[in-house]
């Protein structure tokens, strides 16, 4: 494999790929890339990773907490999104149909003053099988008063009817404060 005496730092490659470098920093970096198979190979990997992340979102192979702008971008990309707004304490009947690319839960919560929000998830598939996990420090919009989640649609399609519960917690110096609990009764589409 080719080597490079002075490889471009990963951070600079990332910044270049995302268009964050000014022209004066970008020009010499491109000169180096065109002369260096080693750094080209590293940038190729980064480009493939970026493409892989886009594919993972489009194909619903990962679960994500979303920002409002991310959700808008999904829609602009032509993804068909089924959305379920939910107030604290509410139980929502939900599904994912064949024509949907993703399902998004919009959890309304009193977020003013919160600096960090964690989410406790549980999925009860019946027969005593309950999976639990915690998402630390999820993105949220205090103004909108919402936390957005999309489960991995690819996995959701294969699941039988189940109940998913989400509890939002404000994490503060004094401890954790419950913000709301939401229940989704899922039936296959």
């Amino acid at each position: 494999m080719s080597t490079c005496a002075k490889p471009i730092e990963l951070e600079a490659l990332i910044a270049y790929w995302l268009g964050e470098l000014g022209e004066s920093a970008e020009a010499p970096l491109e000169e180096h890339l065109f002369d260096c198979a080693h750094c080209t190979r590293r940038l190729e990997w980064l480009a493939a990773c970026a493409g892989g992340v886009r594919a993972a979102v489009r194909e619903g192979t990962i679960a994500l907490a979303l920002t409002p702008r991310f959700l808008e971008h999904m829609k602009r990309q032509g993804m068909r999104i089924r959305e379920y707004p939910a107030a604290p304490g509410e139980t929502i009947n939900c599904t994912l149909r064949a024509e949907d690319d993703a399902v998004v839960s919009r959890l309304q919560a009193p977020l003013a003053g919160a600096s960090r929000v964690d989410a406790l998830h549980s999925v009860d598939s019946g027969g005593g099988r309950i999976a639990r996990w915690r998402m630390d420090d999820v993105p949220f919009d205090p103004q909108a008063g919402e936390v957005l989640f999309t489960p991995a649609a690819a996995a959701l399609r294969k699941m039988p009817a189940h109940t998913r519960r989400v509890q939002l917690l404000a994490v503060e110096a004094a401890g954790e404060r419950p913000l709301g609990e939401y229940t989704f009764a899922h039936t296959p589409g």
Binding site: L18, E20, V57, I62, L64, R69, M74
Partner: peptide, 14 residues
């Protein structure tokens, strides 16, 4: 995961 997906899917700069 949020930072990576916002960077690469939503193509947002830092």
């Amino acid at each position: 995961r949020s930072v990576v997906s916002l960077s690469f899917f939503a193509e947002q700069a830092g």
